[in-house]
């Protein structure tokens, strides 16, 4: 038979990441988040004072050489702020990763093994979803203490159902597609079907959801610290700082509360913008023309 060249292939369509990067919202989000991550991780190296260095009277707003005045126990607010971001960020990130891994596995397994296993897994997820996340986490902490790993575990596991639902929802329609049947006909192992056939086709919504969960994890972990549940009550922590200084918020020294509040707010706004960009890219909104 004649082999006429089938000419001119279209270029590969750009992935979700690249499409979302073209949007201003994603760029702003990334800028905000990078700035705060830099502050949280490297701020301590430019801190003017020590983390636990008492400089004068507590809550003195106008100490010479102190940018935002003093806070609780006479610590420098700016220094405490520069030190206090890391625990929140690290814990939020770790718990999201944990939720992502477990949630994805559960979601894929449920989508692929319809019927009984699906029911068992997803009804369990529904029960977990019915309980408010913050209460769930507080109960765990109240029972076992506020160790860092426990907070990560509690927040992570209580986030699993949300990720699992999104993954399952997307994967259910992928399972119906012929390339999965084709893999089955070839007798591919189940693990391979989950990992190589299904997983790559759920990454877009997964990315969006992961981002949203990160935003929530930041808020939850900030909230827990605010309530005083940190493994080291003496260490600087944005959530804790807000609580420690809220008494003087209207009393002439607002910065002890304001700085971490602004930081957490910006962080959630930033990750939210990134997530928004991702979801728009994934949904194909803002896509240009339709081909005829």
């Amino acid at each position: 038979m004649t082999a006429l060249p089938e000419q001119q292939s279209t270029p590969a369509p750009p992935g979700v990441l690249r499409v979302s990067w073209r949007m201003w919202r994603t760029k702003i989000g990334v800028a905000i988040v990078s700035l705060l991550v830099l502050i949280a991780f490297f701020g301590r190296f430019i801190a003017p004072f020590g983390e636990n260095e008492a400089l004068g009277i507590p809550n003195d707003p106008d100490l010479e050489g102190s940018l935002f005045g003093l806070g609780k126990l006479g610590y420098d607010v700016w220094t405490r702020f520069l030190y206090g971001g890391r625990p929140i960020l690290v814990q939020a990130f770790l718990s999201t990763v944990l939720a992502l891994v477990l949630g994805t596995i559960i979601g894929l397994v449920a989508a692929y093994n319809r019927r009984r296993l699906d029911d068992a897994l997803m009804r369990t997820m529904d029960v977990m979803l019915a309980l408010p996340q913050i209460i769930l986490v507080l109960v765990v902490i109240a029972m076992f203490g506020a160790q860092t790993w426990l907070v990560v575990l509690a927040v992570g596991i209580s986030t699993v159902p949300r990720i699992a639902r999104v993954v399952r929802g997307t994967a259910v329609s992928v399972v119906e597609r012929d390339f999965v049947a084709s893999a089955e006909a070839l007798g591919e192992p189940k693990m391979r079907i989950l990992g190589a056939e299904l997983l790559p086709n759920v990454t877009a919504p997964l990315l969006v959801e992961a981002n949203l969960r990160l935003t929530f994890a930041i808020a939850v972990i900030g909230g827990i610290a605010f309530l005083g549940f940190t493994s080291d009550p003496g260490a600087a922590n944005w959530g804790l700082m807000i609580n420690e200084h809220r008494g003087v918020l209207a009393g002439g020294q607002p910065w002890g509360t304001m700085l971490p509040v602004i930081a957490i707010a910006l962080l959630t706004i930033g990750t939210g913008l990134i997530g928004d960009g991702l979801s728009r890219a994934a949904a194909g909104i803002d896509r240009g023309t339709v081909d005829a």
Binding site: R177, D178, F179, A181, E184, G187, E197, P200, N201
Partner: peptide, 24 residues
């Protein structure tokens, strides 16, 4: 197909209706 031998699976090949969904 899962209970068939590798050889059996390979000797009968199925081509799907819709090429838009049969390739990952």
């Amino acid at each position: 197909s899962r209970d068939r031998s590798v050889d059996e699976r390979l000797r009968v090949q199925y081509i799907f209706q819709n090429p838009y969904s049969s390739l990952n």
